[in-house]
Each structure stands twice: as structure tokens, then as C-alpha cells.
Design a binder for these strands. Structure first.
Lengths: 201, 201
DNA sequence: CCGCCGATACGCTACGCGCAGTTCAGAAAG
DNA sequence: CTTTCTGAACTGCGCGTAGCGTATCGGCGG
């Protein structure tokens, strides 16, 4: 956080500084390669080659492939579009679900599904995926639900964590189990219906 | 299916028959290695070495690693325990969900999650996983739901496919996103509550 | 009934390939 | 002059394929 700034202020960086040019080249090359390859097919060597950069330069700054891809994904144009302010918590959750589905329907959705997969194998990757993607998503929805509970919009039959699972699980399940059905009709109808399920409870 | 029998009746197999001993050794070695390795870490070479079998013997009978692991998983003791006959469709679905969670809680659950992941990358693996695991599971639940709809136990707000997603999605999501919470309490409470959600609709 | 033949499976070894992850010497920035 | 970055070279592993000699089946001719 501001630690970095603080650190720089106290002790100005010694030695040669990190090359921003190389960093950008790596992220750009990664995004470019991901247009034609899956995350698993992607190799660090290919990234290094395309970015005209040594492999070491990549390994120095990222612990593994997942981290590189995650970074490339986030530092992409139009990734942080904020939501309009909702009128109530029910609507907030619906909009968050819609946003999630929209995101997963794009080319990036494929990449995210692959990162999710990678996370199943590698604990290190799991942490990165969780911290960079899953937790922010879940926390945001959980927050709206908690507030909705407090304000009487949602019932208390399920604990918040389970409600999040019930809302998000089907989205990921459909994406990963039968992607052909992950279509516009689903995006259109699912969020409202899913939320209506838990409104009463 | 019976095609195999039919084929044998028409043209009895020529040449040296497949060695059941090798087949069993391969499946056993696979299961054994999976106790300490992930599916992705598992190598065909390691299986061959442990089973004291030529690599070619494996490649001859299985198209890829996923197929071997899937086969090893199915041909495991206590894998096909039939369900007791339910009194109604609601109960049938509950029992199926309980069975699924129980299965995923065992060591096999980890392996299945990894196979699910592998399926995201490789279309070939996806087909195998779908045919051997996902489809049977989904079809069974869908059948109960359809009958439940016809008999008035369930409503028609959601189409059957979406209901299956709503019931199964959270299970896989919790397994893959935050396994620590995939515990006994979840197994105990989730199926009944989840089904109760869709009873009214 | 015996023994050979074609067909297929077997275990084994070896190969080329691609990628992971590390080492090293030197260049670049302060 | 010190610190850090950088790319090339190196090591090791596993994949998937090919070829060798051997084992085991059914069928056929003697």
C-alpha cells in the first residue's frame, strides 16, 4: 500500500531500478498470446520471447504463470468499470451478478475459468487467484447481502457465505460444466430469479 | 455397450488378448500415486514405472491422462453404492445431493476437482469427464426434478437445467473456491435447505 | 493332434522436443 | 563503485513416438 511510498521516501531505491518498459512488454505479450492460447498452453518462454525479455526478468517479478496472467488481466483497458449506485441491496446484488456474468462471457471469462482451474492444482496459484479475483468479488456481494439482512430485505435462513455460494456457484458451474448454455438468455434471466429465491428467506 | 459383445460374437478377437494383469496394475498404480500427487503432477511415466509396464501399453488403451485417472477412479472399491429408494422426488434429490457431497469430501473429491480443472483446458478431457462423471450425475438429478415437476412437488419458475445448476453449482463452487468450508456442517445442512428453496417455485 | 503362421499385445530402450527453473557474466543505472 | 537488472546458456523432466525382440492368441494345413 502506502508502505511502498513510505519506503521510497525514507530510503531512495539503490541500484538499477526496475524497467517499466520490460514490465509493460511482458504484460502486453501475455495478453496478446492469450488471444490464441489457453492459460495452460501459455509458456513463460513464449512470453519472454514475444516480449523480447529474459525469462529471469519474469521470474524475478512474478512467482508463477498465474500471477503473470492475473496481472495482465487486471492491467487491461476497461477492467474496472464501477457500478451505478443501486436503489437497494436487492438491486445491488443483482447488478453485481450481472456484471460477473458479463465479465465471464467475454474473452476474459475463458481466461478466468482457466485461472480458476490452475488454482485447483497449485496452492500458490490458488492464493493469487483468491486474493486478486475471488475475494473482492465475494466480499462485495457478501457486503450487500449482510446489509440486506440487516435492513430486512433478505431472510436469515442461510448464512451469508452459503448465500454467496448459491448465487455465484451456478454461474461458475454453468460456465465450466456446459459453457454452450452460458449465453445471453442466462445472463438476462438468472440474476433476478436467483436473487428472488433468497429474498423471502 | 452390447456392441462390444456383438462384435466379439461376429469376429472373435485376433492375436494376443489384452493383459488384465497390466490393466489392473496400471489402475492400481494410478490410484496409489494419486494419494500423494495431484492429477497434474501425475505423469504417465510414473504410472508406467510403478505398474512395471511399458508406457506404450498405457497409450494404447487410454487417449490421455484424464482417461486413465477417470478409469482408476471409477474402478475403485465402494464407488457404485446405489441409493435407497426414496419416498418422493424431493427426497430423491436430497439424497442425490448428499451422496455427491459425500463423494466430494473424500480424497476423491480433490481428484475430481482436478479432473474438472483439466477439463477446462483440454476439450478431449472435457468430453471424458462429462461422459464419465458429469452427465450421469446431472441426468439423474434432472430426472428426479422433471418427475417432481410433473407430480407437483416442484414449480416451473426455472427450467430444469437451471435448477440443476442452482443445486449443484454451489457444491462445486464451495469445493473449488474455499474448500475449508466444504465440511460436515455443509454436508448436513445444504441439501435440505437448497431443495427447500426450489420446492415452492 | 501337432506345429507353424499371422496377428496383436507385451516390456523395454531410445529419441527429439518443449518447457521449467537456475546459474552466470556482464551491462546499466544511480 | 555498488546494486540491480538482463539475456543467454544450462540442467532436468516428462511427453509422445518408434523400433526391437518376445509372448500369446486363433486358425489352418499336414
Amino acid at each position: 500500500m502506502s508502505n511502498a511510498v513510505l519506503k521510497e521516501e525514507i530510503s531512495p531505491p539503490k541500484g538499477r531500478p526496475r524497467s517499466e518498459k520490460s514490465k509493460n512488454a511482458i504484460l502486453k505479450a501475455t495478453n496478446s498470446l492469450l488471444l490464441h492460447k489457453s492459460v495452460q498452453e501459455l509458456s513463460i518462454e513464449a512470453i519472454a520471447k514475444k516480449a523480447k525479455v529474459g525469462k529471469t526478468t519474469i521470474y524475478r517479478w512474478w512467482p508463477n504463470k498465474t500471477a503473470v496472467v492475473m496481472d495482465a488481466l487486471i492491467n487491461q483497458p476497461g477492467m474496472q468499470t464501477p457500478l451505478p449506485t443501486p436503489r437497494n441491496n436487492t438491486e445491488a446484488v443483482i447488478m453485481q451478478l450481472e456484471k460477473l456474468i458479463r465479465l465471464l462471457q467475454s474473452k476474459n471469462g475463458e481466461v478466468i475459468a482457466q485461472l480458476f482451474s490452475e488454482a485447483q492444482t497449485n496452492p500458490e496459484s490458488h492464493k493469487i487467484f483468491e486474493n486478486s479475483f475471488l475475494s473482492p468479488l465475494i466480499d462485495a456481494i457478501a457486503f450487500s447481502i449482510d446489509r440486506g439482512k440487516a435492513e430486512g430485505e433478505f431472510g436469515n435462513t442461510f448464512d451469508t457465505k452459503t448465500i454467496v455460494d448459491i448465487l455465484c456457484g451456478p454461474i461458475f458451474f454453468r460456465l465450466m460444466a456446459h459453457r454452450p448454455d452460458f449465453d445471453d438468455a442466462f445472463q438476462e434471466s438468472y440474476p433476478r430469479k436467483a436473487v428472488s429465491l433468497i429474498r423471502a428467506n
